[in-house]
Amino acid sequence: MTLPSSGSGRRHAVLCVDDNAEIAAALELLFSRLPDFEWLGWLPAADHLVAEALERHPHLVLVDIDLPGADPFHAIEELAERDPEVRAVMFSGHVRPELVDRALGAGAWGYVSKNDGEEELLSVLRQVAAGEFALSSEAGRMHV
C-alpha cells in the first residue's frame, strides 16, 4: 500500500485507521481540500499503525474502534510510548462511557463520535493539534 507524500510542516498531517473504505475516501476528500490538514493516507486495520506512524510521522492519528485485527487501544498505547508527539484521536460510531475511558487511558487526546458530524471532527482535530484535549459532543456527554 502506498501513501501520498506529506506536505509542509504547518499543516496537520493526518493518518487514518478505518476498515470502511468509503469513510476513508470521504475523509481523504475532506482533508484534501482543507489547507490546514495533510492527508497521509489510511490503514484498514491497526496492525501496522505503529510501524507506519513511526515511518510517516503524522501529527494526528484518527482511529476507528470497531476494527478487524489488532486492538486499536493497544496500538495507540504503544504508539504513545514510541512517539509521544503523535496524537491519537478515536473516531467511532460507538460512544459508550467505558469506551471513552479506555481510549483516554490508552493515551488518546480526543474522542469523536461519527454521529457528531464533520464540523465537530475538524474542530476536535484542530484543538488536539493545538495541544488541547477534546471530545465531540456525544462523547462529552458520556464522560465525567
Partner: peptide, 17 residues
C-alpha cells in the same frame, strides 16, 4: 443507525465537495 451514519458521512462530504 451505525451503518446509516457510516454511509451518510461520505455522502455529506461528497455533497460538500
Amino acid at each position: 443507525g451505525h451503518d446509516m451514519g457510516n454511509l451518510l458521512m461520505p455522502m455529506r462530504v461528497r455533497l460538500d465537495t
